[in-house]
Design a protein around this nucleic acid. Structure first.
Lengths: 217, 217
DNA sequence: AAGTGTGAAGTCTTTCACAGCT
DNA sequence: AGCTGTGAAAGACTTCACACTT
């Protein structure tokens, strides 16, 4: 019930419960049990109940959860009643892909500005009435458009510099795709997505599997 | 020393140590301590030593690690001496971005085939002498090009179907960008990258920070 | 009978702290 | 003196198991 010391993995799972619930509701379910959700995600039902218990009591003993009420509760917990404005810095392949990724909008995250310093990209029109802006307009636009999240899609070498600028401009959350550890002050949150690291982890487990089967790597 | 029960987080960190070492060597360092690495990554030096200890002894007491020898060791552990061929299924924005992402090649991961079923995309030429192929050629090309990893960049609804096809074709590792839990048999490894979940986790911690400061959300 | 909510037990991961080498 | 390698302690997260409600 004390939402200050919620395990990080719990938050990740809540986002998954949210998606499960949406899909179950779409399929006409009105009541769901912790086991229904757990089975869909390949986890234990006690995990689902424990995760929810950090935030309150959402179900009825002997019955389960009202799908609608639980979805409502999970949305509340995840701050999904609110919309979040974000900007992307670095319009290479990844930045472009994100700018066009509709899934985020469905979750309440809206791209409001795109930045790059490459002269050949500045001014390029993008979906949603946006154009690519030079980085020197960042501070101003972050204010004007009430942007609270910045996505780092620039090369590692300049990532820290951009983060500092974003934070100085008032951003309170960072999604970092650059393969470097960024330092941020108290009160700012960060999530890293490092695709190379993920590929390497995969390669490692694949190699382990070989060993387990007694084959040489 | 028993590489079968290495914590998952350890493997992720090893990939980061690899990058640190490369950069330190580039800067002319020949000897490094666990604390040097730890400070760069914002973790504890004991964590670095413990992680390495799962795989052997790489350092000299009182001295530290030879940067070159340690890099060599970490590369070995991560299976980076080997090259890995992968394919991408689903050439939307994300698939396109990945196909053009040079960082993977530097880590030893090579795109060898691109698939999509959208007729307007099939045949489109892509960098590296590849063209976008229809999914019905997947099995054949996975064999011919010795592809061992498949990247899922298709919508959630068809992801399981594609995974089944990839595995039936001989792929042993999956990188999944679709926002669904995929079921896979023993002996196949999977890593999920779910961008919406990451955004939501970030939004959650940002909301928590507000609470901590006594502000209403 | 069925399914939640939750302390307590169990497991996994990190950190400590120090013996042991250079 | 400085830094590794590692058992042992601490901490984080998951699972169990059962009292409790419908």
């Amino acid at each position: 019930m004390d939402s200050q010391n919620v395990p990080k993995p719990t938050v990740k799972r809540l986002a998954m419960y949210h998606r499960c619930l949406e899909s179950m509701i779409r399929n006409g379910r009105t009541n769901v049990s912790s086991k229904d959700i757990a089975d869909l995600l390949g986890i234990k039902s006690s995990q689902v109940r424990k995760d929810l218990s950090y935030f309150g009591e959402f179900g009825k003993r002997g019955v389960g959860y009202s799908a609608d009420r639980l979805l409502e509760g999970v949305s509340q917990i995840l701050g999904m009643r609110k919309n979040w404005n974000f900007c992307i810095v670095g319009m290479g392949n990844l930045g472009m892909a994100l700018a066009n990724y509709a899934g985020l909008e469905k979750s309440g995250f809206f791209v409001r500005a795109l930045f790059d310093n490459n002269p050949s990209k500045i001014g390029l029109p993008m979906p949603g009435e946006l154009t690519i802006e030079p980085v020197n307009r960042l501070k101003r636009l972050v204010h004007e458009r009430e942007i609270s999240i910045g996505v780092i899609a620039v090369p590692g070498e300049v990532a820290q510099e951009i983060v500092d600028l974003l934070i100085a401009s008032g951003v309170r959350g960072i999604i970092n795709f650059a393969p470097v550890r960024l330092s941020i002050p108290e009160g700012v949150s960060i999530e890293d997505i490092d695709i190379s690291v993920t590929f390497r982890s995969l390669a490692f487990s694949m190699s382990l599997d070989q060993v387990r089967q007694g084959k040489r790597i």
